[in-house]
Design a protein around this nucleic acid. Sequence first.
DNA 1: CCAAAAGTGTTGCCGGTACACCCATGG
DNA 2: CCATGGGTGTACCGGCAACACTTTTGG
Lengths: 208, 208
Amino acid sequence: MAAAVVVVIFTVQQERLSVLLIERAADPGRGEWALPGGVLREGESLDGAAARKLADETGVSEVFLEQLYTFDRLGEGRAEVVVTYFALVDVAQVRLRTDLEWRPAWHPARGLPPLAFENERVLRYAEERLRSKLEYTNVVYSLLPAQFTLTEMQRVYEAILGEPMDKRNFRRRVVGLGIVRETGQTLKRGAHRPARQYEFISRAPMTL
Amino acid sequence: MAAAVVVVIFTVQQERLSVLLIERAADPGRGEWALPGGVLREGESLDGAAARKLADETGVSEVFLEQLYTFDRLGEGRAEVVVTYFALVDVAQVRLRTDLEWRPAWHPARGLPPLAFENERVLRYAEERLRSKLEYTNVVYSLLPAQFTLTEMQRVYEAILGEPMDKRNFRRRVVGLGIVRETGQTLKRGAHRPARQYEFISRAPMTL
DNA sequence: CCAAAAGTGTTGCCGGTACACCCATGG
DNA sequence: CCATGGGTGTACCGGCAACACTTTTGG
């Protein structure tokens, strides 16, 4: 009866918010999907355990990772308490594990398979917190590459919030509030006018 | 190495934000003060354990009580993880335990005695969260009796935020946003004009 | 020349803040 | 009559939302 750590790993892919899930190859919960997690090791810190799980599954570190909530007695799980975290990753940086037994895969946050251990509760809570953090922090930095266009950034916001935003208001806000700045470079893609590239002023979480 | 629960119990007393602390009569931490807490019992829920601790120390229930954060390896504590909660109580409803060994007492949040188990970190975090929740929720309901005057309510806000507020703006806000309503009754006290009594529209936590 | 995305300003509304005076009561 | 707290309105400012057209490019 030790403590367990579970990590909700979000990304935005094809204009959809997605979550990393693992198909369980053993009981309990065989054949269902679950959030990545595991037991806290002897002498390990909570933040350390969460970062380890995240790195195990995605290969990334140095991304936004924050404690979410602590649950007790989640479903059939054997842990006394489950400390949950949530992380935001740029899908382009991720290399998923390719084990035969415990397959990780991205799933759109809308339209999930059956989940083990009442992970739906955890996910709902994480999604709510993510949406609210978008509004008053710069956490989106962790979902985008070093350089990007404002349109790409806006698509990420829209995927998470689930509604279209006004282009002019969006731009005024993110540059005006000091979240991003121009790099001076531009990017040409397809039959379009070249787009200015932007970068985050800070790649650490900050409250606006 | 089980999980422990710790509760930060706030009240407002004589226009000061205060916290309930317990003087430790045994090691570790003998002679220091600490937040009330204990080990999670077999089969007990986290919320249940927090409510039990709160009721043990103050006799109250049905007040605002919410999970705060989960810490690992706090000081010399023996718990693997410590799940912290914070509660808001009306000091008039509280009857403190009067054990000889483990004395509970209110301490002003500014100017605390030496604390055991790194409880300063927990307290700082709880205080910050309380201040921010004041702004966008009705949690203050849990610090006041059923009926009260707007001046009393304003004093509670000022004690917690640590700065005076404008009377007219305060009143407009709390009635306008539907936090409180008039009861129709008035209260006479001393050499003053009678004051209208108010009550909370909802005595459950709500976001504004 | 057409389709597709980039880029750009103005206006109205609302919420928040600053600010000062008169009133009812008990002693 | 005076000291004490109760009660009230207005004006300014800044952030936020709504809204439409022109430009550049590749095919």
